[in-house]
Design a protein around this nucleic acid. Sequence first.
RNA 1: GGAGCGUUGGUCAAGGGGUUAAGACACCUCCCUUUCACGGAGGAAUCACGGGUUCGAUUCCCGUACGCUCUACCA
Length: 509
Amino acid sequence: MEKKVRVRFAPSPTGGLHLGGVRTVLYNYLFARQHKGDFILRIEDTDQNRYVEGAEEYIQECLKWCGLEPDESPLHGGPYAPYRQSERKEMYREYAEQLVKQGNAYYAFDTPEELEAMRDKFRTEENPSPQYNHSTREKMRSSLTLNDDEVSRLLGEGTPHVIRIKMPENETLSFTDMIRGEVSFNSSLSDDKVLLKGDGMPTYHLAVVVDDYAMKITHAFRGEEWLPSAPVHLLLWKYLGWLEDMPQWAHLPLILKPDGHGKLSKRDGDRLGFPVFAMNWKDSKTAELTQGFRELGFLPEAFINMLAVLGWNDGTEQELYSRDELIERFSLDHVHKGGAKFNYEKAKWFNHEWIKKLPADKWQMTVRKDFEQKGVTIEDEEKFSKVLELVKDRCTLLTDFWEQASFFFKSPETIEVAAVKPKWNEDKAMFFDILAEKLTVQEEWTAANIELLFKETAAEKGIKMGELQLPFRIMLVGGKFGPTVFDIAALIGKTETIGRIRKGLTNIG
RNA sequence: GGAGCGUUGGUCAAGGGGUUAAGACACCUCCCUUUCACGGAGGAAUCACGGGUUCGAUUCCCGUACGCUCUACCA
């Protein structure tokens, strides 16, 4: 019988959740759903130095916002709990000891200073980063070089030590990556990675293997940066006797900086003016706030869609996919091998498309909250809906609605007088004066009626419509933008329209 | 330095021995609109280079170049 598909996203709680991270979550999630499998969130908090308070909750919240919630996690629980590596500490040591007994790993007593000294000693122009490997390990203090009595004594005295894997010499290690096909490495090229640290915590290398095995993970997705350490993991699966259960790997292409080269980082976002994190992230130490896609006005649907097609396509011309469509269409053999530069303009385009595509009630509340935060309370639901419908074509981000629609609810504070002043004259002033009078007695307040009245009055005064529309717009809106003026007048109501004309008249004239 | 991985317009990319080498974003022109957008019609722009294999390579093979990742008691 086929094993049930189980995948996992395994972040370290060290800060904001990066675009690349969300995409890894997405691919995991899509794969799991497509195969009716389980999606697990496992927190890899084995590095006490990098641990950041609140980061785990933040990650959970991001997944929730994206609509990619796990089936098992520290929060939801599950049959393989705990899902936090710090709470699984004991089991890693056991396996590490087992490897030592088998001769596949060893105790190393070198101090950080000794390691540094070793690196300094062997560092040359040709070899800028000397490794702790078959050629150097003979010269270090470990259970490989010390006699048994000495080792037991050191251990007995509680001497700080780590457990390192003993990499074999000259073995070809290969495996089949779901995206890249067969990849192989020479075992001599990898160093003797630390498996268990001095503080008793495992490193990533030991922890992923042990946990993926314990949690019955069948497919493992991770960034391409992990490819070079895959042989170490492969060896661990083998030494621990679990090779049969090793998950299939997929090393995902990286998301690159839009300019220049290299992996996209939070810094690039700050530098180039776009978000990199899914949601706002506030560093608890520096109190520095980094803006997220959510707060900048992105729809989760758009965010997910944009990420899905950054490195994947279904071979057709389609670009807009709902989450369910993605679940149906996603496939690993259409995932690109090369990295993709992030393009913020395109990301915004996706958002614009989703604003137009989604029914307004999906995002209305977000806009409303934004308005209320900026001091405009919505009293008339119906008017609010009509306004949103009227301006949504002009909004790329949800936060654009403020600029495009706030004038429907409050009179513009300043108006762009300069736009009409040069062509302003007595006749025009008179026109608006008469218009205001006529509007006062206008019974049925509709865009069509207002337009009709406007036209008639213009004809009477012998002024062209076009000459008058811009001033009218400036009076109502404050600037040269927005929908048709008559629609605006109809929506803001009679009193307000007349009020803005009068006010505009005094400002311009 | 070494290893691994990668390379189709400015960007995301389809295609995969014979094609006018799709499409999208951005850019340019025009139309619509006497506002700003949306929308519509066009335009410019691409197979990194060199060798093979082949009647024929963007596509397959080998090199080269370039880029990225890794080379921590970080993940």
